[in-house]
Every structure is written in C-alpha cells, then in structure tokens.
Design a protein around this nucleic acid. Structure first.
Lengths: 369, 369
DNA sequence: TCTTTTCCGTTTAACGGTTAATATTACACC
DNA sequence: GGTGTAATATTAACCGTTAAACGGAAAAGA
C-alpha cells in the first residue's frame, strides 16, 4: 500500500529518500513520478493543471517539482512538437550596421521567446552555404537572412523555401527570391544624398559604389543617377567607381578620382567606411571639405560625427530595421497560412554635417546667381 | 515474400511506391526502413557502416538515403547523447571589440562542429540572468561568458558551475569565479600606455577609467599607478576619473579635467570610445595634441587611425582572443576530467600615433634636460 | 547428428516529454 | 445486486535515433 502523499513529500524534502535525485542529472518528470508513486503522465498533467487530476496530487507534484528544481527538457519538447523556438540568422559580417540590426532582432526575438543563432558568412558564398546547412540541421524554426556580397546563386535560399521553412530577408534583399522582407529604401537614400550635394552647389558629383552585383549598392546608385538627371546634370561614367566595401579600396579609388583632369567636386560613398577612406585621400591631396570638395557617406555610423570634418551621412535606422525584421518573422510564424509576402521598406534620413555643408544656403545661392 | 532489394529501389526511385516520402516531412530512418522492409536499427547501422551488415544492404540503404535526402534529426540525437553541439555565448554588447571576439569564437567553433548562440546582456545584470536561464534551458553544451559591467553578484555563473556545465570566461574575467579563462594582461596594457606617456615627457598624466567595479578597468588603472610610482611621479586622485564606458561621459569628464587650475598634460583613456570623447573636449578647448596634451586610448579600434590627429592605442588582439577562448573551451569539452583551470593571458601591444608622439625622443629629452 | 560459430538482422529499451485511449474506483440510483 | 457515471489515474504510442541484447539460419567442426 502506497504511503500517503504528504508524508512522502516530507521524507523527500528531508532527503531521507531518493537522495540520488539531488545529483548532477537534471530532474525529469520520471523522477517525480517514481518519488510520488505516480505515473509519468499524471505528473505531466498535474504540472500543466489538467482538469482531471486531484488537487492534492497537483499540490504534491508541484511542490516536489519546485523542490527538485524541475525544468522541462526543451529537446524532448522540440522533438515532439517539431519546433525549436530558435531562429537562424545569417549575416555577411558583424560590422556596425549589422551588429546593430542583430541587436534589434535579438531584442524582439528574446521577448517573443525565441533564441537566435547568429552565423556570419564573412562575405563568403561558401560559408553562407555551410551556415545554411548547419542551421537547417539544427532544425531552426526559421531563417532571417542577409546575403553575402559574393552570393550570386540562390539555391541554398530556395532550398529553405522548398522545405516550407519560414524565411525573412533583410537589408540585402534578393530580387529573385519572393518572400517577406525588410529593407531600406535605398533609392531614396541615394536621392537624399545626391540632392543635398546638388543643393549645396556641387556640380561634378562622383559616387563610390560597392561591389557590382550588390543590390543595395546598385539601388543607391540608381537614386544618384535619377537625381542627377532630375537636376539636369549629365551622369559621367568616369565618376562612377565600383569597389569593394573597404576603406583601403575607397582610399585608392578616391586618389585616382582626384588625379583626373576634371576631378569631382563632391563624392557620395555608399558606406561610411568608404567615406573615411575617401576622406583620407582628400586630406592627403590638401583639399578642404566642404569648400573644395563635398563628401556624403551612408549608414550614419557614430564615427561620422567623430572625425574632422564630421561627415554627412544617410541614416538607415539599423536597430529599428532589426526589430521590424524579427517582428515580421514572428508574425509570419504565427500566421499559419503562407503569408502574402509582405515587404517593409524603411525610409532613410540624411544627417547633414560639416563635410558637405557649405555656408551658402539655397537662398544665398539664388541671390548670388 | 519480400521483393528483392534492387528491384524495390528501382521502384522507389521511379516513384511507384511511397510517393508520400517525397512530401514535406523530413525523411526519417523509419521511412527508409519501411521502404526497404528492414528494421530501423538495421538502417541506422547500415548508414554508420557497422561491420555486421551485408554490403548489399548497406548499398541499398545508402542509395535510398541519398535519394530521399535523408538527414539525421539532430534533436533526436541530442536527446539521446545529451549534447547539443551548441555553445552559449553571453556578452555585454556588440561593440567593436566584442564583435571581433565573437568572430574569432565563431570561426573556431564552426570548425569544431559547434554552433554558437550569442546573447547580449546589453550591460544589464537582469538581462544577463535571463540569458543564462535561456541558454541553460536550451541545453547548450557549455558557456563562454563575458560579464556585464553591472554584474556584481555571480550566483548565475556559479549555477552553471554547480551543474557541472563547462564554462570559460573571457575578457571580463571574474576573480571570485575559478574557471578556465582568457583575458588580456590589463595591467601590462596600463603600463605600456603610461610608460609611453612618461617617456614622451608628460608629467601630469590623468586617467579616464571605466566603471568602478569593472575588473578590466581597474587592472589598467593598476598598471597606470604602478608606472607612475616606478617613474617617481606621485599619483594624484584628482587625475583619476571613473566614468561610464561612454563617449559623452568621457567628453564631460575631460572638460572638467581641462578646467582645473593645474590641468593634466596627458590623458590615458581605457577605451578608444572614451579617447574620442576626450579628443573632442581637447579640441574644443583649443589645445594641440601631442604638443599641449598627449592622449592614449585602448583597444586599437580602426577609428583611432582615422581621426586627426590619429590616436595612440593599446591593441588587445580581440580576434585572437576570441579564437583562443573557443579553443580553450573545446579543449575543455574534450578532456573529460575536470580540467585544472587554465588561464590564458594575452599580451597587449602599444601602437603609437600622432596624439602622443612628440618629436623629441628619449635621447633628445635627456640632452635638453 | 549435434553443437558451435559466424553472419546478418531484429527486438527492445532508452532519451524526456505529451496525449488519446483505457482502466480503476467510488458512489448514486433503480 | 446490477448499472451508470463521475472522478482520477494509468497504459501505450509517439517524436527520431542509437546501443545492447537477443534470434535465426547456415556453415563449420566434433
């Protein structure tokens, strides 16, 4: 005949029985079941307040669970429910913009009960493939991806979609892939920067664009071209330089630009890193910003306001973008029907600083003209 | 009577049978077993090249596995083997130094077959606790932790240890906790910076230290104090400012320093962010670096060579530190005995730049004296 | 012919949890 | 005394995998 439950609990609490339960292994439902002479399922249901368990039993189970610091094994649950509450995040690197975005993703995910696994592809297509494979194996509940600049083939992304695994693209969105996404209005960013330079009276505006196949770079350039045309300025191919997202390349490209017969009187770089590179070359040449030459960057990294002269830059709200991405992702998870692929587009804003702000205002310029 | 295996394979390949296997669900070992009229475990052993399976059988199994894109379910394996091949990484934020370290950790972990889960505490004690709990629930195989600046109580860390879960601390190491760790020789860093300033002829050297309870900050200060004494300079309490790791605070603190009757003629900041803040205040005051005042930062962030004047800084080899940490961690996992807690200490190196390099060399100074 | 070995597989249990179907018990009612 | 019905607990199956123990048949040895 089994002992009465309260007495048993007392003995367990006082460690007279089952002292092995206090060992290294995590307590399981089975331990509690054995201790209280109940079946596994009774314990399970008691913990989850099922209606058909006696109140006394529930109390005893819960007390012992508390006592033994019982915690359900997530692995077992995941196996059963086919979900891991984990989001796989693939990003090309951990630079300022992306780590800020990850921060945003992390924050929202945490709140929604998800843990993120961040993998960096390091701008390498090969590593992106490996990361994708890894995360697929890890059975993440879904993917949040920003592709590397090397990525020109998207089979690995399509594989995710074929398996009907939720996917959100962000920042570096891919046109060939149709899925929910969050991105900056890069054209608008290009327009903002270029129009500002035009407004400040610059006439020969060069652009340091990123790698040729990178969508975000091309869109920013599109904005640049549109704005030139709109203002009656003829785009000049020699003023358009493609180079890696890299300070060194930007430095060298700028040096070449400045060595031209008719050098530019303003430069728009599609990242702040590149703006810094450009700035070094400009200073080396002995030119003054904003008088001799104007400079506008992109991303609005803190460094832009730290250097001298401070650099005008286009803010892309990376943190908010990260949050929006995670929110969209979670929304998608919760809507069981395959969601119409929503596209969230963030509007950029230009922060004007010393590098491009000539003293003359628009009005002044009109008067003097 | 069961059909001969090759014939069966053919039919499966041609989708005559079991077309449901081509459905959304991942193929399992059971699917293969049913298809080939074998038992689950035979399939399992065939896939793993167990010796007591007929070669023909193995071939058939492997062929079908390939065909159906079979991939073992990690969750099931983890449940069985009690290991998830996942490392929980807790860091206070994703600034330049830490993201570089995470890059290093990630690289080594990936190679060793581990995936990392990065959680940011955002310098908040509360979030650090939450993160720890989450990762414990996720049953990570171990922890790599750098504590937040708010953390003064370490019960959550001890809890990890009590559960005998492998733990490595890095960068912000905690004295009260005895475990393998990787950190910078912060005292040496403080010595390098201070001795350099002394060598350059600066006499009244101030220090912008970080939060009071932050070990790394205090150690750097210790190096500073030691060096002053060694060189016969008397430390002055008014020259020691504790403030948050934050550019704004550093800016204000520097303004106050410079407003003193006897202001410092050099400032050592224990981060580059703070150095930038200090620099802004110095420029605002109209002082010239390095002539009127010297400045040395810490971390050797890229920004130090981008600003003008460029800032001398102590390099802490963040990427290598990250790699070393992950290596130590994996080594620990593989050595089943509780490892004697190894402590890896990285030696810093000073990079001298414009902000502190007076033209005079040591020899010049001796001559003129 | 009977036992032993070898070969090739299968069965079972386990990991830790949930859940649907099934007992068991007690009590009221006819 | 049977029957119906709550109330409560148990069994067994399942998620996907592996490891240990066991099984059956054929070949080899006595």
């Amino acid at each position: 005949m089994p002992e009465p439950v309260p007495e048993l609990c007392r003995r367990i609490r006082q460690n007279e029985l089952f002292s092995h339960l206090y060992m290294e292994r995590q307590t399981t439902i089975k331990d509690i079941a054995v201790a209280l002479r109940l079946s596994k399922s009774t314990v399970s249901r008691a913990l989850r307040d099922a209606p058909d368990i006696k109140i006394e039993t529930k109390k005893a189970v819960k007390a012992l669970a508390e006592e033994l610091d019982y915690q359900p094994n997530k692995l077992a649950l995941s196996l059963l429910n086919r979900q891991t509450h984990t989001i796989g995040v693939i990003i090309p690197n951990l630079d300022y913009v992306l780590s800020t975005m990850v921060k945003g993703i992390d924050e929202v995910a945490l709140e929604a009960g998800y843990t993120v696994m961040v993998c960096q592809s390091d701008e390498s297509f090969g590593r992106e493939i490996v990361n994708t494979k890894r995360l697929l194996e890890s059975l993440v509940d879904g993917f949040i991806v920003s592709v590397s600049s090397e990525t020109k083939v998207f089979e690995h992304i399509k594989k995710i979609q074929n398996k009907k695994i939720p996917l959100v693209l962000f920042d570096r969105v891919v046109n060939h892939i149709s899925c929910p996404s969050v991105r900056l209005d890069n054209i608008a960013g290009g327009v903002l920067a270029t129009q500002h330079l035009v407004d400040q009276g610059y006439k020969r505006i060069a652009i340091l664009a990123g790698p040729e196949n990178l969508n975000i770079s091309n869109k920013r350039m599109e904005g640049y071209l549109q704005t030139l045309k709109l203002n009656g300025l003829r785009p000049d191919k020699r003023m358009i330089i493609h180079c890696d997202f890299n300070q060194q390349y930007a430095y060298e490209a700028t040096k070449e630009l400045l060595a031209m017969k008719q050098p530019p009187d303003a430069i728009f770089t599609i990242s702040d890193r590149m703006a810094i590179g450009a700035m070094l070359a400009i200073k080396e040449k002995g030119l003054q910003m904003p008088d001799d030459i104007g400079l506008v960057g992109f991303n609005n990294e803190p460094v832009t306001s730290l250097v001298s002269p401070s650099i005008s830059s286009v803010e892309m709200y990376a943190f908010e973008m990260g949050k929006a991405t995670a929110k969209l992702f979670i929304e998608m998870l919760n809507s069981d029907d395959t969601m119409a692929h929503q596209e969230i587009v963030i509007k950029p804003k230009l922060f004007i600083r010393e590098s491009s702000k000539r003293i003359i205002t628009k009005k002044d310029r009109n008067n003097s003209a």
